[in-house]
Write a protein that binds this DNA or RNA. Structure first.
Lengths: 234, 234
DNA sequence: CGACAAGTTGATGTTACTCAAAAGTGGTGG
DNA sequence: CCACCACTTTTGAGTAACATCAACTTGTCG
């Protein structure tokens, strides 16, 4: 008889998030709990994946904030996406490595994911990883639309909505306050703006009683209004 | 004894492009040639994937130009990426469908790709499809960096370099003239600019003897100079 | 030839960038 | 506990890049 894995509040957030993407078997849970125990910690500002390096195994984000970014030769930085607990950092085949790196922003913890071929019994886990990849792609699309067609105010609001969504479990209560440990300069490099302009934009949102930001957390005071705001400039 | 598939100039460009991504077996080639014969044609401005629709099978682009795009509620359009011959349009799982669609720009031809489970003998093909997906992701990263951190001139140049690269086979001679059937408005919606500004930017590039654009083709007169230009604003 | 789409031009407006400096914040060691 | 440091946030003034609007020209195709 199989041991039933009771996955409650004690289960790491990252694992609960993964399990929302596909039906996980007990084997999957056992494997994940085990992986979580032998997790690898990485310090802020350290690279998880160095630019130009190939990586054999995919990684699962267990804790903290990391980001994928690239630099122009003259020093401009663009943050491509954030990697939050439950996100998968795909393996990179040899020969496709670019000048793009993944860096820890806070303290983070990751663990290697099994190779699909080597662990055929973890089918649910592989499904979840595949699901995570398509979800990831959707967020890349959204980031492109944000940078290409939204103005500064809309970009900040749309991005905050995404960050909130990505930190919520499907069965969570409607919580409008969520962790947001970034500096304004980091936000600027994400949204294709300058730190100064991000600052002024956040002030405008504060004055409009839409958003509260500070000391590591953000609050969407009026999420419905925020959603309406995005894409309705005219 | 297996029939040896001689893949020469007569082989469709899309198939040669796929075969550059992974070593394809004769079974793979046979399957692809067969698929190319029962290809599906789609007219310009028609949707390949409608917004909000799930698709069971991945599609392979065989001919023409298509694009993935989304609209803001007030009518701004952002083109997320172009889909060229040899590109794979991944299947979309139920429940993850967003307001994002794939539309034919020119006449295009596509064919459905086999489900990995149903065609275990086409291993090389599946590898190529996976490779195509990671390559695709790199181009999404590049598009994000382009929109977030490059100015109008750099965006146009960097984008032209990408479009040239994606239409070249690895073993092609260095050819600086390539098909580019888009209108300036379409380019604008890709690069997050207005059609007017794209027009002026193209003129600047023409005046600088860097780029020639017209009647469905583009020419990079000085590709080395173009590469140097991107990311060196300071 | 005529109609419609695409490309071009000029004038004006607005958003966001740049530069520079001040004020606030948190952490460290004496 | 305070002084100091580095980093972050905030503020102001001037500027550059790109958008907007509107007209005009060119090209394309039936």
């Amino acid at each position: 008889m199989q041991k039933v894995v009771h996955h409650d509040k004690a289960t790491p957030f990252a694992i609960r998030r993964l399990s929302a993407l596909a039906r996980l078997s007990n084997e999957d849970f056992v494997w994940l709990e085990e992986a979580a125990r032998r997790r690898q910690r990485i310090l802020p500002k350290c690279d998880v994946v160095e630019a130009g390096a190939a990586t054999r195994a995919a990684l699962l984000m267990l804790e903290g904030w990391a980001y994928r970014s690239c630099m122009t030769p003259d020093g401009r930085r663009q943050i491509i996406q954030f990697l939050l607990p439950g996100d998968v950092i795909p393996a990179l085949p040899e020969g496709l490595t670019q000048h793009i790196s993944v860096t820890a922003f806070t303290h983070i913890a990751v663990c290697a994911l099994p190779d699909p071929a080597s662990l055929p019994e973890c089918d649910g886990l592989m499904k979840a990883v595949a699901m995570s990849a398509t979800l990831d792609t959707r967020y890349l699309y959204r980031q492109i639309a944000r940078l290409g067609r939204l103005d500064a105010l809309e970009r900040v609001v749309d991005w905050l909505l995404e960050i909130r969504e990505r930190q919520k479990l499907p069965d969570d209560f409607h919580d409008n306050t969520f962790p947001m440990p970034l500096t304004q300069e980091t936000i600027a490099d994400t949204l294709g703006l300058t730190a100064v302009h991000v600052n002024r934009t956040l002030q405008a949102l504060r004055r409009a009683d839409l958003v509260q930001i500070g000391r590591g957390t953000a609050t969407l005071i009026d999420p419905e209004q925020c959603e309406l705001l995005v894409g309705h400039r005219r």
